[in-house]
Design a protein around this nucleic acid. Structure first.
Lengths: 137, 137
DNA sequence: TATTACCCTACTAAATCTATAGGAGTAAAA
DNA sequence: TTTTACTCCTATAGATTTAGTAGGGTAATA
């Protein structure tokens, strides 16, 4: 299952992508427009800013805005920031590899090989899809 | 993340696929060979039997065995039984569709469209991969 | 009839998810 | 200069899910 955090994060990003570039949008506005709990959204946008996807302006008429062109924001990046590794098991993760404790031999593990296929397939989708591809729906 | 339940279930299935067809293998044997907690495995195999993938024989020299040829067991079935719907959001699930409460218009939802791509890509992998494809690793 | 092994329900500890609370800090407008 | 409208940040709490465990029941077979 996709977490609400990721879901809301993607919705917020697409909302920002549709605005004039560089103009900050307040959390409250996004919260209302996308039906997202304000305080929850606050923490999500904070995460996105810390990851370098969003910029923010403090004080009156402040808010969040995209730091890059929507075309440059790949969903693989967004998913990694909000949802974590794209791989479904650590032993096939490219960025966060970890050996499975229960598995003596990866090369002989059926789950390992299946999950490599799944990872590659998902990586292709997330890598080929940018915010620009989603913002006009 | 893939749940341990699914991971262990796939391991158990591939172990059974490697045995002589129709000969029951005890839970204890699979548990030892694949490093899986016996009691946990018990509930997993029960689920697989109830779903129609496994048969069982009670009493001495009893155990579990595959009901179908490994080629006929697609991973899409296995995943659905153990992990649940393949779709990451209910609003793109073919078998368990549900409307998202927070989303007024699916056609206008970026997450919806992204998750359709992900679902199709995963469905392809799981549909094209059978137990027979994994058992010889 | 003793033993072996599956059958089944219920329970629990730990982790994760989904928020919420409450204030500190900042910038612009009145 | 005071007020207002924002973001920033940490902590916490309730709900849900996960990963197992406990313990007895039931059927088959040697």
């Amino acid at each position: 299952m996709l977490s609400k955090k990721t879901k809301y994060g993607i919705k917020a990003l697409t909302y920002l992508a549709k605005q004039e570039t560089g103009v900050p949008v307040s959390i409250a506005t996004i919260s209302e427009m996308e039906n997202i709990s304000l305080k929850f959204l606050e923490t999500i946008l904070l995460t996105l800013r810390k990851s370098g996807l969003l910029g923010s302006k403090k004080g009156k008429s402040g808010g969040y805005y995209l730091l890059k062109d929507a075309k440059e924001i790949k969903m693989s990046t967004v998913i990694r920031v909000l949802e974590g590794p794209i791989a479904m098991v650590p032993c096939v993760s490219l960025n966060y590899y970890e050996k499975c404790s229960d598995c003596p031999d990866e090369a002989a593990c059926a789950v390992h090989h299946l999950m490599i296929r799944v990872r590659d397939s998902n990586l292709k989708v997330y890598g080929e899809t940018s915010l620009a591809d989603l913002m006009h729906y």
